[in-house]
């Protein structure tokens, strides 16, 4: 498993001893040692995933770094969080993915009818298996625990991802229109029910 460490809140340090790491193309800010960067056509999800991604716009340009040395990753001075996965599946907006262990399987899944007004993809990215994922947020990431009888409502622009056994719904609230802020055309909230964790950034900036 590739070792992830945060140098500080906004800089990710990955030590490679012959391993690989998948990352957002262009997010390398520095490296030492002997490291090779290559374009990755697929995020590890196979041909079907690549095809889907092309259709869905949920795609991100990925690169794979391999070799021996340390690589530092960052993007737009956004705050970073390392989420270690132990066999679970993480749903995450692709705009929030910075880097992940190449042994993790990624895919894109249909998440419903949102995006019609927002320009969001109709798909979100899933990451599954055992290994580290580094996600980005504007402001430090918040982790909300959802339990039975305690649904959580989230602003779609602040939504980053979720894991556990959660159902996601779109709640169209007439009153919600009065909440519309800034340039966004959203008129719905995301509602999560079940048991699991929802990741939210303290910002409505996409």
């Amino acid at each position: 498993m590739t070792t992830f460490r945060l140098t500080n809140d906004r800089l990710l340090e990955v030590s490679l001893q012959g391993e690989k790491v998948m990352a957002l193309a262009g997010a390398m800010v520095a490296y030492d040692g002997s490291v090779r960067f290559e374009k990755s056509m697929t995020g590890g999800e196979g041909l079907l995933g690549a095809l889907k991604r092309r259709v869905t716009n949920e795609g991100m340009a990925l690169m794979v770094a391999s070799g021996t040395g340390t690589v530092w990753f960052a993007n737009q001075a956004r705050e970073l969080t390392i989420l270690p996965l132990r066999g679970e599946k993480l749903f995450v907006e692709s705009r929030s993915l910075l880097a992940f262990d190449p042994s993790l399987r990624t895919d894109s899944v249909f998440t419903g009818l949102r995006g019609a007004a927002s320009g969001h993809g109709l798909f979100t990215t899933t990451v599954e298996g055992t290994g580290n994922v580094a996600v980005m947020s504007f402001g430090h990431l918040l982790e909300f625990e959802v339990g039975p009888g305690q649904p959580l409502f989230v602003d779609p622009d602040a939504f980053v991802g979720h894991r556990g056994s959660l159902a996601q719904e779109f709640v169209f609230d007439v009153n919600w229109k009065t909440m519309v802020g800034q340039s966004s055309g959203e008129s719905y909230q995301l509602k999560f029910t079940g048991t699991g964790v929802v990741y939210v950034q303290p910002s409505e900036r996409k």
Binding site: P151, L152, V154, D155, A158, N175, T178, M179, V200, Q201
Partner: peptide, 17 residues
């Protein structure tokens, strides 16, 4: 509260202009 600054909530709430 200022519009658009709600990022999440638990419970039962209404937001009115």
């Amino acid at each position: 509260i200022r519009k658009g600054k709600m990022i999440a909530y638990f419970g039962s709430m209404k937001f009115e202009a």
